[in-house]
Design a protein around this nucleic acid. Sequence first.
DNA 1: GTCTATAACGAGATAGAC
DNA 2: GTCTATCTCGTTATAGAC
Lengths: 208, 208
Amino acid sequence: MGTPASASEQRDELGTSARILDVAERLVQERGFNAVSYADIAAELRLTKPALHYHFAGKAELGTALLTRYTERFGAALTALDTRRGAMAKLDGYATLYFDVLREDRMCLCGMLAAEYRTLPQPMQQAVLAFFADNESWLEAVLNAGSDAGELQFTGTYRDTARMIISCLEGAMLVARPFADTARFSTAATNLLASLIPAPANCRSAER
Amino acid sequence: MGTPASASEQRDELGTSARILDVAERLVQERGFNAVSYADIAAELRLTKPALHYHFAGKAELGTALLTRYTERFGAALTALDTRRGAMAKLDGYATLYFDVLREDRMCLCGMLAAEYRTLPQPMQQAVLAFFADNESWLEAVLNAGSDAGELQFTGTYRDTARMIISCLEGAMLVARPFADTARFSTAATNLLASLIPAPANCRSAER
DNA sequence: GTCTATAACGAGATAGAC
DNA sequence: GTCTATCTCGTTATAGAC
């Protein structure tokens, strides 16, 4: 449960801006920012290009709005996961957030934009970095608590392990999508999380 | 050592086709296929667009040639790694192939094209899948041998572990590049490979 | 808030001279 | 093998009517 994306795309009662963002978000996650045009978005919504320009002055503004909303939604999903008891339950939920995106045949928005990073306007670049930094912070806290509770075990620092989780999940999405093989992702995610489970009995990690 | 890329870009004695491929490869790895134009490539080589069309009829043909050469070069690098003794030495060399690409501020060509997959012409799509399949096969063999020799230990199948290695390295590149932080990659790669070392070496409190 | 019309530019691609 | 010139199309973006 809990794709941070879409949810509103079907409803007609929503504002035009929100529907533009919904369509744009999906198209960017599928094709990449550079491969999506105002014409593509307008056509899906049966609007015209100037109507889009009324809501979002330029492509840079649209992209920034996309990132703001996506990061907020993802942050809310992480906060929701905080109510789960147990570090592994939280990490499981975290991996499921990614899985739900992949199941819709989409790449993580920020994973996609990370690939196109060099071509993005500065405000979008900053927002992509902020997204990953946010995720890293949340994971660090989960790893810290899980380690203290003896639920988790890993050799690297909290930060490095958090980064590794993000890298593995983003990479697993990146590669699984061309193969149209969600199991490829699930297996990688499962193995990744399994590697954080403490070895039985006499094998424990040192304090940091 | 041993970036499978470039190497020839500086020399003037090379054929024009090879120099076109060199420039195109670098630009695609930096910006993405959709963000590179014939004009960009021609300008760097002080040629004109029709000169490029003489060597590569269209962008699809150029992209396919790019993939063919890249996959061959990567395959040759893998064959070279086969001479190393020890599974971990081979895996280390494998990770270094990725690192050398990242150090040049480039994404893995096929990681980049995986993001843009939906927008690629079919021949390029097939070539991207083949690249990952090739890598997977090589890794599977290394993991198999390393496991038999007791050098490596992992819980998933050879195939799943091979896929996880590819995913982690591709994802680590994807995320490290926007941060312009090669250490981010190295740490992830080191942790990844460390997780394949059998327990006794990995666990401080003695033997199982 | 959405439209028609159009500007201004860059893309991939081709014809034909040299 | 490379050029100039040109074509056609798609792109972002704006002016101004409704």
